[in-house]
Simulated scan of single mutants.
Amino acid sequence: MAGLMDELITVLTNECEEYRKLAKLSEKKKAIIIKGDIISLQEITDKEQEITSVILNLENKRESITEDVAIVLNKDKKDLKLDNLIKLLENQPKEREALSQVQRNLRSVLYDMSRLNKQNEILIARSLEMVEFDIELFKSMHQAPETANYDKHAENAGVHLREGSFDSKS
């Protein structure tokens, strides 16, 4: 059992380190989004995908270890959340403290990740709004404005002025 706990603690510690890497990339991403540097944003996204792949592998390993612990303890795997495992380790203070520390570290880094992701989400949404505004502005610059030009029946004839042209007839 102690070997399984050590292995679980190692996997969770590695997972925490990978999340820290993601958090650092999210910090960099924030500055890149503000600058509007699309190429650097793509590079960061590629790095994030690599780290996410490592995290997924660690998650699979953690699941496997948790299944082994459930078999050893004769418990349902669903009941073996970190809080429950920590409680079950009351006779193993070293493993209990190590697991508690990893849990605190994971909570902290996941909180940071959540906060950074929300900030980046807002920045991206604002950037998209600005792009849409720019597109609409660009479109409107290339459309001729309709003048209030009425015909003899008092209906708008819908004459469009073009750049460089002036109609002096009324």
Rank of each mutant, 00 (worst) to 15 (best):
A2N: 15
G3Y: 10
G3T: 15
L4M: 11
L4K: 15
L4W: 11
L4G: 10
M5S: 14
E7C: 02
T10I: 14
L12V: 02
L12H: 03
T13Q: 12
N14D: 13
C16P: 05
E17L: 04
Y19H: 02
R20D: 01
R20Q: 04
L22Q: 11
L22N: 02
A23P: 01
K24M: 10
L25H: 00
L25A: 00
S26R: 08
K30Y: 05
K30W: 06
A31S: 13
A31Y: 13
A31G: 06
I34F: 09
I34K: 12
K35T: 05
K35S: 15
G36W: 01
I39W: 10
S40Q: 10
L41I: 00
E43W: 03
E43R: 10
T45K: 11
D46K: 12
K47C: 14
K47T: 11
Q49G: 02
T52P: 00
V54L: 14
I55N: 03
N57G: 14
N57V: 10
N57R: 14
L58N: 14
L58I: 08
E59M: 07
N60C: 07
K61V: 02
E63N: 13
E63I: 12
S64W: 05
I65P: 07
I65E: 04
T66F: 00
E67S: 15
V69E: 02
V69I: 15
V69N: 01
V69S: 02
A70G: 05
A70T: 07
V72K: 11
L73C: 09
N74C: 13
K75V: 00
D76L: 01
D76M: 01
K77G: 04
K77T: 14
K78A: 02
D79G: 08
L80S: 01
K81Y: 06
K81M: 04
N84M: 15
N84Y: 12
N84W: 06
I86T: 02
L89R: 05
L89F: 07
E90D: 04
N91K: 13
Q92T: 09
K94R: 07
K94L: 15
E95N: 12
R96I: 06
E97P: 02
A98I: 04
L99R: 08
S100F: 02
S100A: 08
Q103R: 15
V109L: 03
V109W: 01
L110K: 07
M113I: 06
S114K: 13
R115A: 15
L116W: 10
K118H: 03
L123I: 09
L123A: 14
L123G: 13
I124V: 14
L128T: 08
E129N: 15
M130H: 05
M130V: 04
E132M: 09
F133T: 06
I135P: 03
E136D: 11
F138R: 05
H142W: 03
H142P: 00
P145S: 07
T147V: 10
Y150T: 10
Y150E: 08
K152L: 07
K152V: 05
A154T: 01
A157F: 13
H160S: 11
H160V: 13
L161R: 06
L161P: 06
R162T: 06
R162D: 14
E163I: 07
G164V: 06
D167G: 02
D167S: 03
K169T: 13
S170W: 01
